[in-house]
């Protein structure tokens, strides 16, 4: 289902919020394995922006652990074909880091005043909305990710930049501007900055 938000743009709905805090959301995908890729910009409802920082697929009922079923099967697809209930017993969840929100027509790269409510729909932002959010390339949002202390935070940040760059006509320029912004935030830690920069297709 497609919901237009920004004039001329479109956003694809993929799930809804099942846990919400001001910094972090847990979203459940409507379809198994139909999660947006790591680093994707996601809009919850009308105003809260977040990026995908983690994806997991787990049993719907935590008391019923999943068991291996493919001993006799020829392929992975065969396993799912022979056990159609799996689609119902499993769920794909995404963890989202909130990185901004929208106030009217203005985009803010900092935390919203309130988290979205449970069952708020989640949308993958289309290219135009991505450009609108990242604007001139100044990664003010990056400080939220850097300070959150995620174990794979740098990977997430690099993934966000990579995903966002794809929406721009000159991805290289966007990446350079954004990386320089990150460099200011990580001025005292060149090794960490280096790790992030190496994950970006800079200069290619």
């Amino acid at each position: 289902m497609i919901q237009p938000l920004v004039p001329g743009g479109s956003a694809a709905r993929f799930g809804e919020v099942v846990e919400a805090s001001i910094e972090r959301l847990l979203g459940q995908c409507h379809r198994l394995y139909a999660a947006p890729v790591l680093g994707t910009l996601v809009r919850a409802g009308e105003s809260v922006y977040a990026v995908v920082e983690g994806i997991e697929t787990v049993a719907l009922d935590p008391t019923r652990p999943i068991v291996a079923r493919g001993a006799e099967a020829a392929s992975e697809a065969e396993v799912y074909a022979e056990h159609p209930q799996l689609e119902r017993l499993l769920r794909t969840q995404v963890t989202l880091s909130v990185i901004g929100h929208r106030e009217g027509s203005d985009v803010r790269q900092y935390l919203p005043p309130l988290p979205p409510r449970i069952h708020t729909f989640l949308h993958v932002c289309a290219a135009e909305e991505v450009r609108d959010f990242f604007g001139d390339g100044r990664p003010d949002f990056a400080s939220l990710l850097i300070r959150r202390g995620l174990s794979a935070g740098d990977d997430v940040l690099a993934a966000v930049l990579r995903q966002a760059a794809g929406a721009f006509e000159a991805p290289g320029d966007f990446l350079l501007t954004a990386s320089r912004g990150v460099a200011v935030l990580l001025a005292g830690d060149t090794a960490r900055l280096n790790a992030i920069v190496r994950r970006l297709p800079l200069g290619s």
Partner: peptide, 8 residues
């Protein structure tokens, strides 16, 4: 690294 140099 030229990429790193331009960032830094």
């Amino acid at each position: 690294d030229p990429a790193m140099a331009s960032v830094l």
